[in-house]
Every structure is written in structure tokens, then in C-alpha cells.
């Protein structure tokens, strides 16, 4: 599988104290470990097991995921912004790889 590619939607601008909606998606098979290949051998589990979102280093939202999360895990959540800054998103894979994305927001 190609390297998982994160896609994140964060508004470019917001007013102080506004609650914004953030949408994230990452391309990933989320192999559940329940499926079997042609020869009947189980395909080993390989999923993204944790997602975190921080704003200027402060935790905003996190999610622990089990194999019951669909392929290409999609998450939509909110954040309250009081100042301009950077959202950092991280996805942790079962094999230890970490995928990250950054988004800045300007607050008037």
C-alpha cells in the first residue's frame, strides 16, 4: 500500500472564541485481522490505532481506534480557537509509523 496520505480541512480564518469544525481523513486499509486470504490464512491486523489533534501544543481531541473503524478513517470534531496558531494532527500506525499534518489558522 502506498504511504497513507492525510487530508485535513481547517478553516483559514476564524474569530476569537469561535468553535470551528475540523474534518480529517487518511488513506489507510485498516486491515482488521478478521479477514482471510485466498489460502485461508488470516491477514494480520494493521490499523491506525490512535489519532491526536493539538493546537499550539495543547491537546484538543484524540481518538483510540479499534479494527471496527472503516478503511480510510474519517474524523470530524470541533475546536475552540482563542488565538492564531497551528493545529498538529498525528496518526499512529500499528507498525509504529506516525503520519502527521499541520494546519495554521489566523484568528482576528
Amino acid at each position: 500500500m502506498a504511504t497513507p496520505k492525510p487530508r485535513v480541512k481547517v478553516p483559514a480564518k476564524a474569530t476569537k472564541g469561535e468553535v470551528i469544525t475540523i474534518k480529517t481523513l487518511i488513506s489507510h486499509d485498516m486491515e482488521s485481522g478478521q479477514r482471510k486470504d485466498k489460502d485461508g490464512k488470516p491477514i494480520p491486523r494493521k490499523i491506525i490505532n490512535r489519532f491526536t489533534c493539538t493546537f499550539n501544543g495543547q491537546p484538543v481531541f484524540a481518538c483510540d481506534m479499534a479494527p471496527a473503524i472503516s478503511a480510510n478513517p474519517y474524523l470530524e470534531f470541533t475546536a475552540k480557537v482563542m488565538e492564531s496558531g497551528t493545529f498538529t494532527f498525528t496518526w499512529v500506525d500499528d507498525d509504529g509509523s506516525v503520519y502527521t499534518a499541520d494546519n495554521t489558522i489566523a484568528v482576528q
Binding site: 495543547q58 478513517p73 474519517y74
Partner: peptide, 30 residues
């Protein structure tokens, strides 16, 4: 939790005051 799945665990969302609201969406397997 999904009662009828091989393993019931699905996901756990962790919120903080910075989340603003406790509203979230995802897509799951049943």
C-alpha cells in the same frame, strides 16, 4: 461499542475544554 461485532470495541473519543463542543463523527464497520 458495537454489540454484534467480533470484538465490541469501536473507538474512544477524548475531548478537552479546547474542543469547544463534545460533537464528533466517524465511520465504523458493523
Amino acid at each position: 461499542l458495537a454489540e454484534g461485532n467480533p470484538t465490541p470495541a469501536v473507538a474512544t473519543f477524548h475531548f478537552t475544554p479546547l474542543s469547544g463542543t463534545a460533537v464528533a463523527t466517524t465511520r465504523i464497520r458493523l
